[in-house]
Computed example of a mutant assay.
Amino acid sequence: MRSLYAVLAGIGLALLAAPPARAAIEEGYVPGGAPVPTTWYGSADAATIQADRDYIRGMQPHHAGALTMARDYLADPEARSPALRRLAEAIMRNQSFEIGLLDDVARNLDRPPLRLGVGPFSLALQPMATEGMAQRQGFMRSPIPGVLDAAGPVSVRDVQFAKAMTVHHQAALDMARAYQTNPAARNGFLALMNVDIVTDQSQEIALMRAVTAAYQGDAATVAVEPGMVHGMEGMAHHHHH
């Protein structure tokens, strides 16, 4: 039995520990620190793995849509709001990293489970994620502008971007909350990532609403074409399941 305990210790009993005080997972790296990637393990239950796969299949293309929306906005000469420009840059940096985390979770779910023990005392643990990617990549999360940064010139294009991205973010919040309340969804890494998504994107929605409120014209008359909201196909697929 001592060998079994040693294996359990080796794969990281941090899985059972309380999460850190700050919610953000993979917040950033420690300059000069050595990357020490740690594999997270969880239940090898088929329904649990399927819940993770469904979540990734929806959130991954949705995040990719946020990147193209932000890129299109930054390339538009009518994008005037300093706060929204900073937000778009933060979205591109932060959500690109989160897409990498989702890719890594998907790769772990494709790995065979780790089987411990034999007979009725055997245990199957599924690799679910790799912690430490921020340190390995030298990633540092870009800060999100606050509501007090919303002052400044606001163009029609700014209002369009704010409205479109608010719709987009709301869909991500719905998906994150659906995962958190799904009894089959038990991936602790994705659960912490969802806390970040809900926290960050709620703050970003508040900023975008503040910028829209600062528009000198009638924001209600500024139309948002459906093509301005990208990456919703994955969300539709997810909700139909």
Rank of each mutant, 00 (worst) to 15 (best):
Q201W: 00
M165N: 02
Q203C: 12
S96Q: 09
H238D: 08
L148P: 00
A79G: 10
T199I: 01
G138S: 10
Y73E: 02
Y73T: 03
A214W: 05
R115D: 08
D196Q: 09
G10M: 06
M140T: 15
A66P: 01
A24D: 13
G146T: 11
A150Y: 12
V156M: 07
P145L: 04
D174G: 09
P61D: 05
D218S: 09
P37N: 03
A34F: 15
R141H: 08
R107V: 04
F97W: 05
D54H: 15
A90N: 10
D149M: 00
P19Y: 12
N194S: 04
A176W: 07
N187A: 05
I49R: 15
M235G: 09
P19M: 11
L109C: 02
S3M: 12
N108L: 06
E204R: 14
A185Y: 02
G32W: 15
R115W: 01
W40L: 11
L101F: 01
V198S: 13
A206T: 08
M1F: 12
Q60G: 01
A220W: 01
P226W: 04
A6S: 11
V159L: 08
P113C: 12
R86W: 08
H169Y: 08
L173Q: 08
R85D: 06
H230W: 03
G132D: 00
A191V: 10
D104T: 15
L74F: 07
G33T: 14
F161V: 02
R85E: 06
L173T: 02
H169P: 06
L102I: 07
A210L: 13
M140Q: 15
M165E: 01
V154Y: 11
M128F: 13
Q160K: 06
A213T: 11
N187T: 09
P127T: 04
L173C: 02
Q216V: 14
V167Y: 11
M208H: 12
F97G: 00
T68S: 15
T48S: 15
A223T: 14
M175A: 06
G32T: 11
M140H: 13
D174C: 01
V147K: 04
R186A: 09
A129Y: 12
Y55K: 05
G58P: 02
A191I: 12
P127H: 04
E78K: 14
H240C: 07
I144W: 07
H237I: 10
I99F: 01
V222N: 05
A44G: 03
G231F: 02
M1T: 10
S81C: 10
R136C: 00
I91T: 13
T212H: 02
A88L: 08
Y73K: 05
S96G: 13
P120D: 13
R93L: 15
A75Y: 13
P112F: 03
G217P: 08
Q95A: 03
I205C: 06
L123I: 11
A172R: 09
V118T: 14
P37T: 03
L116A: 09
S142M: 11
H169S: 11
